[in-house]
Design a protein around this nucleic acid. Structure first.
Lengths: 361, 361
DNA sequence: GCCCGTGCGGAAACCGTATCCCATGGTTTC
DNA sequence: GAAACCATGGGATACGGTTTCCGCACGGGC
């Protein structure tokens, strides 16, 4: 009676167990399972029967160690419950699954420490790519931190992908997938201006956030293009949540300035703004027009349905994954600076029912 | 000049590189890093310096293989973008991160084949637990399939956790985390009935879905308790999306029967219903009352804010992870049938502004 | 001054799989 | 008929860690 391993004990069956029970060598089992080596029909049958009997699955860790293994992509974001992020994640995950890749998910809660810890954790896992989602605060420090991440991942044969974040300056091994944030805001503001609005309450988001800054710039440019003075006092910064939308509108209604339209930084902010207007007895869009940004499902679930900027979040996720997959298959040669490092997708205004020309007072 | 490995080549540094450069043995490096063995301060300093210099991280696959490794939990769901699922996922992920666990995510797209493939994939990964989210169709076949999954995972030292799904009959090694679905529906329907509504359009969801069935049963029981006949013709089955809510209401308004309130199966369905009512020129709640289920953020973003049933999704996620973590730490002894295999969390009605007593015609 | 206990570092045996290299037996070719 | 060849299967090794077992050096107590 051998000391090796009590048959039928807990824990999973190994390839050795299969080999032993089938009366073949370990190498043969491996070959049957991976199928990249000619084996006789007889051998295949014998092995597969034992595999089924033992309900054997290969150990992914061992396989990875030995060189094979399925590639894994890590998705890191602030918060899974954000609709926009969730759509990007869906895009990444879907594209990953399509080519047999695995997806890991981690949330940073907007904490640089946790971000660092997670990137390191992913590096340990030997992921093929780390996808970082969402806007960034504190630009200068951000650039340095990301550059470190990028080089560190690159050294480990992995790749940093920035989605919806500012791309990196200098010669940094990273891929950026972005959308025309400022252009979308420009178009959205133009839509309001061309409807005749001149007094627009602007809620771009948190002042330090890169996406908010871009959306504000786009709006400003539209005002300039229309020759309408852009009054800084009409801008209210704050987080991307409905409470901020509510409070900002509530306060503006109480303390001024007067406005005939609200340009919200996201659909969620617009939802809050809409509630505040209703609470004050104002009708949308008859009394006040309102527009959002992102085009998440919420936008079409509100009444009236929200005119907003469509951002192809899910496709950004797919594109991000495709980019790293291509890079990985395209050959190991570092193709620094080649186009494909920075992809920009278009945005467009989706016209629904939340905008009307301003009422003549 | 050794053939071993060209220093500075691509690929990550190994523990051997660190040992060599620090002039110590591999074992010492391992001991410094895992910290479960006394080492001198001098050694620690020397090793850590090289670790930083080389930007070394341990190889998680190798570590797992050797016995250690960070536990991983797999979250499998239909669709990441569903708000309710996302909250559960957040709960699981948060609790996992809290104890240093990793989270894998996969989406099944409601395809049993993909579910099977994913469960196998997770088994290969050696995950500590597989968490399956969401209601189930086709009860009898579901029971068999899950029982197989459960046993298969159990044999591999892993654990199946069902969240918001029917629990398994018989002696199956699985954990279920559920909420009082039927009770919530009972309370919600009672709320409408006690406000005086007698003609209620019921949109419970897809006829074959376990959650929809529970919500319908709860509503029925409430009608019985109030002595109000439950008219099957007032029930409209369909998917959990806003289009279904819209169409069902639109059609009922056109073809009858008459109703003074809508009992929607989810908040999203309620949002669609609300739109249809508005489109028909009816006011909510003055003309028609409406209630939802789930209490996702959407519920409080609609106007009027939706009265709905709060389901503690995020906590369910946390509870699910805690359950498997406890099981794993509590000792290997299979404690079949012990309480803790089936956890049920409470639900409660959240009263907002979408219900009024019916207008006297 | 010797002995023994203690503390720490090194060598080696695993973990489970993929793959390289070689052995074997039968078939083809000259 | 012998040599070369093909197809197939087995043994050994590498992957990058962790951990056990051992031995060495050092210091204190008698």
């Amino acid at each position: 009676m051998s000391q090796r391993k009590v048959s039928g004990d807990a824990g999973r069956a190994t390839i050795r167990d299969v080999a032993e029970q089938a009366g073949v060598s370990v190498a043969s089992v491996s070959r049957v399972l991976s199928g990249n080596y000619p084996v006789s029909e007889e051998l295949r049958r014998r092995v597969m029967k034992v595999v089924r009997d033992l309900d054997y699955v290969t150990n992914a860790h061992a396989r990875s160690l030995a060189g094979g293994g399925t590639p894994t992509v890590a998705i890191l974001m602030d918060n899974i419950t954000g609709a926009a992020f969730a759509h990007v994640a869906k895009g990444v995950e879907g594209a990953a699954t399509l080519r047999g890749w695995l997806s890991l998910v981690g949330t940073t809660g907007n904490d640089p420490e946790r971000e660092l810890a997670l990137v390191n954790l992913m590096r340990q896992q030997g992921v093929a790519a780390v996808v970082l989602l969402g806007g960034a605060y504190d630009q200068d420090e951000y650039q340095l931190r990301m550059a470190r991440f990028a080089r560190s991942l690159d050294a480990a044969g992995s790749r940093l992908v920035l989605v919806g974040r500012p791309s990196l300056e200098g010669d940094v091994p990273a891929t950026t997938v972005d959308y025309d944030n400022e252009g979308g805001a420009y178009a959205m503001a133009s839509h309001l201006l061309s409807a005749g609005h001149r007094q627009v309450l602007v809620l771009p988001g948190h002042a330090g956030l890169s996406t908010a800054q871009g959306r504000l710039r786009g709006a400003q440019r539209a005002f300039e293009a229309y020759g309408v003075p852009f009054v800084p006092g009409m801008v209210r910064h704050g987080p991307y949540d409905d409470q901020h939308g509510y409070r900002a509108v509530e306060q503006a209604l109480r303390d001024g300035p007067a406005f005939t339209a609200v340009l919200a930084g996201t659909d969620v902010v617009a939802a809050g703004a809409m509630q505040a207007l209703r609470a004050a007895g104002l009708r949308v869009p008859e009394d006040v027009s309102i527009v959002g940004y992102d085009d998440i499902p919420l936008a079409s679930q509100l009444t009236p349905q929200l005119t907003t900027v469509h951002v192809p979040y899910e496709e950004m996720g797919r594109v991000a994954l495709r980019a790293v997959a291509d890079l990985r298959e395209g050959g190991g040669g570092r193709r620094k600076g080649i186009d494909g490092d920075h992809l920009v997708l278009g945005t467009h205004v989706v016209v629904r029912n939340s905008v009307r020309p301003p009422a003549r007072p």
